[in-house]
Simulated scan of single mutants.
Amino acid sequence: MSRDVLEIEGVSKKFGPLTAVDDVSLSIHENEFFALLGPSGCGKTTLLRMLAGFETPTRGRILLDGADVSRTPPNRRPVNLMFQSYALFPHMSVRANISYGLEMEGRPPAEIRSRVDEMLATTQLGGLADRKPDQLSGGQKQRVALARALIKRPRVLLLDEPLGALDKKLRGDMQIELKRLQHEVGITFIVVTHDQEEALVLADRMAVLKDGKLLQCDTPHEVYEHPADAFVAGFIGVMNFAEGVALAEGGVKARDGSAIAGSLPRAVAGGQAAVAAVRPERIVLFPAGEIANRTSGTVVALAYHGLDLQLHVQTPLANKPFLVRVTADTADRRPLAVGDQVELGWSAADTRIFSN
């Protein structure tokens, strides 16, 4: 078991009458890639700024290696914050940008050269050392900003939407690069993002926040497969919902009177308003044989994504069409068009039930 490098104990932050962060407690492990995730205004950036020292908690404590740093100024914390804008010095070379922090600390020139060379190699920037920022691509600038943040060897590196300025393809490339760098340097990374896919790819664990409150903290797999509530289920990935009433024997009675099979969680009792949920990729098109849940519907829209085809199917279970993900191979073997009648099915084990 990795030890905790950072402990957040009952932290709240108020700005006048507004509570931006509400009684959040988290433990973040050494050498962990941790993601803070949530919609705009959920409190994730405020929490990051408190970890960096730019905001002071209204209540609660932040412990770094067991020491309370809640009121320690940013320059006295072994923590570095990398901003989305990168904030590179435009008149300095890549090497000068990376070495700046060590020079400000008054490190010996030989040590600076050695550590900069090492960081240039780690971030694969060796051939760009003499270039200025305006001669670099977006991905190269991001690596320079990372190198500058990492060269001071912080205990924790905080990243605020680090890939937000990059296009989709470059984002994908840099996600892999970030994971490689974090593994090589062995530093705890905490990233703030509103991009669910990015968090799923990058994080060892993730925390989902809403309205300043922590809703769930777990591995990406657990959060995706076993969301704590309907909000988390809908926010992480894509989810189909059917509102109804929980059945005492298990499952949910949908609005059309049909029963959706699934196990009731402890928080949901029979007769209570509930919502049944299923992921698009768990739904089988034209299911054969026995299957717990079965419904029919009309294809109202098609969305081609290259690797797969997403069907929008209007069913009697819900007002909103169900989304069904079909592989390109399946779509080629059985072409579909708007207006087609289809049958859908999924297992009881793939149903998630939440209070409504």
Rank of each mutant, 00 (worst) to 15 (best):
G53W: 07
G138D: 02
K13R: 14
P78L: 00
V79C: 05
F286D: 15
Y86H: 05
R3C: 00
T295S: 14
V191R: 00
I187A: 04
E55T: 04
L163I: 05
L63C: 06
E55V: 05
G60P: 03
F34A: 12
R279G: 05
L311W: 04
Y100D: 00
E249A: 14
G234F: 11
V284I: 15
A149E: 08
V284F: 13
A52E: 01
R148D: 06
A203D: 11
G244C: 03
L36E: 05
T188D: 13
N80A: 14
K14R: 15
R266M: 05
S347K: 10
F83M: 06
E243F: 11
F15H: 08
L48D: 04
E30A: 14
V201H: 10
I190M: 05
V278A: 07
R325N: 15
G345S: 10
A96H: 09
T58N: 05
E30H: 13
T19S: 12
L323I: 13
V284K: 14
N293S: 06
L178Q: 04
P287E: 13
K253E: 15
A259H: 13
E32W: 06
A331H: 13
V223D: 04
V156P: 05
E177P: 09
G251A: 04
L264D: 04
F89Q: 02
A273Y: 00
A96P: 11
D4M: 13
A149C: 13
V278T: 02
V275D: 03
L181V: 09
L178S: 05
S70F: 13
L125V: 08
L209Q: 07
G306I: 10
Q216A: 10
D117W: 07
Q84C: 10
G38A: 03
A199Q: 06
S137R: 02
R143A: 00
A230R: 14
R153N: 12
K169S: 11
L48N: 02
G237T: 11
V313S: 10
L120E: 04
L51S: 06
R61I: 01
G186V: 14
H194Y: 06
V324S: 12
D23V: 04
R49E: 11
Q310E: 15
E249N: 01
L247N: 09
